[in-house]
Amino acid sequence: MEIYQHFRKEERPFIDQVLSWREDVEMKYQRKLTDFLVPREQMILKAVLGNDADLIHGLYGGTDQVERMRAIIAPEYEVIEEEDYQLTLLEASYPDKFVTLEHRDVLGAFMSLGIRREKLGDLIVRDGTIQIVCASEISDYIRMNLTGVKKATVEFKEKPLEKMLENDETWTTKDTTVSSLRLDVLVKEIYGMSRKKAGMHIDAGHVKVNFRVVEDPSFTLESGDMISLRGKGRSRLDEIHGQTKKEKFKVSTAKLN
């Protein structure tokens, strides 16, 4: 199928999933609400659905700033409202003077309940407050069962989505040239290490691309790809601007401070 040639081989199962959703909506005239999608999946969904005259689709995750969003695919005559995405904002407080919690601590507590990551949207942990956007169908389960994170006792309560904290992440951007778009080359450039060390991190499973572990140093990156290196934070390949006369790639990258 022609659509496959625009994406990576390992992305074919998700492309097939989107095609199946589209077919179901077209045949049954019933809308489809997905789980939370990461940015790369959102991009693929929009590309696969394209400008289908018989369908409409939308993405929403609580605010315009969020990373993870649920999608709705519906017949073209329907109207999609924000409440149709069935999102719930849960909030809990903890004594940050006595307990230090990080994003991974809280996410780990959620996952220990047997909740799939795809049922959870963006997660904010700061200044003694935890906020999580989740699929409404699991909000009661979370409130009843998640009562502690590390040494902190927590009680999650439902809040209006308008009360969602703004993401205070700051990114440092950089324009540079690289010899290729290989993963080890970009990790070397972004995180300031030797290419050999970058390759060692990749081989050891310390590097994720679009939230999935990639252990191939020669993996080719594309515009919009998210990268994370264990212990070193997150980064992005924002844009590929073309090649220089010496056939190097001009790129824009960003790293989370």
Rank of each mutant, 00 (worst) to 15 (best):
M1A: 07
Y4E: 08
H6V: 05
F14V: 06
K28Y: 11
Y29M: 04
T34A: 07
L37T: 15
R40Q: 15
A47Q: 10
L49C: 04
I56V: 08
I56H: 08
H57K: 08
Y60R: 08
G62S: 06
T63D: 08
Q65E: 14
V66R: 05
V66P: 04
E67I: 05
R68D: 07
A71I: 06
E76W: 11
V79K: 13
I80S: 09
Q86C: 14
T88N: 09
D96T: 09
K97N: 11
E102F: 13
H103M: 04
H103I: 01
V106R: 07
L107V: 14
G114D: 03
E118N: 10
G121E: 04
L123M: 14
V125M: 02
V133D: 03
S136L: 07
I138H: 07
R143K: 13
N145V: 03
K150N: 03
K150L: 03
F156I: 00
K157S: 01
E162A: 02
K163T: 00
L165E: 04
L165R: 02
E169M: 06
T170L: 02
W171E: 01
V178P: 00
S179W: 03
S179H: 03
D184V: 01
Y191D: 12
R195G: 01
A198Q: 03
M200K: 11
H201V: 10
A204N: 15
F219I: 05
G224C: 12
D225Y: 15
I227C: 11
S228A: 15
L229G: 05
G231T: 15
G233F: 05
I240E: 10
T244D: 05
K245I: 04
K246R: 12
E247A: 12
